[in-house]
């Protein structure tokens, strides 16, 4: 059962698809943003799990340490998380403004074309 050993990838794929599904299937913009967050999180987990080395120690400089996890992906993902938060913030700000101007955050209730009042 080699594929069970790759369970982290299955998790990533599951999260990715779940998030993607929410983004596509839901007309509610807040839910879309939540889906987007889940989608992004899948990649964070992907990065972090690939940094793990079998039997590796935390990457802190100590005597006799030969096998340790790769610290770089963690650092990268810290940045990516910040980016993700910024995206969510901008997205939510837009949703608030949409609520103010249209009175709804449901995709279907927003007219495709209207003449500005």
């Amino acid at each position: 059962m080699a594929w069970l050993g790759l369970y982290n990838y299955w998790l990533v794929i599951f999260l990715m698809m779940a998030g993607f599904y929410v983004v596509i299937a839901h007309g509610n913009m807040v839910k879309k943003l939540i889906g987007l967050n889940v989608f992004q999180t899948s990649v964070f987990i992907f990065y972090i799990t690939i940094a793990k080395a079998d039997g590796g120690a935390p990457p802190i400089l100590t005597e006799g340490l030969t096998r340790y996890a790769n610290p770089l992906p963690h650092v990268l993902i810290l940045t990516a998380i910040v980016v993700g938060i910024a995206t969510t913030a901008v997205g939510l700000a837009l949703v608030v403004r949409i609520w103010e101007r249209f009175g709804t955050v449901e995709d279907e209730q927003i007219p495709d074309s209207d003449d500005p009042e």
């Binding site: 987007l36 992004q40 901008v90 997205g91 837009l94 949703v95 949409i98 249209f102 074309s113 209207d114």
Partner: peptide, 25 residues
Amino acid sequence: PDRRSLTAAFRYLVMGTIGATFILM
């Protein structure tokens, strides 16, 4: 100036973020 710029931006945000996440992957 048009209020639909908001929905346009939101749609772009969703698609753009998906694209960026793909790139990250």
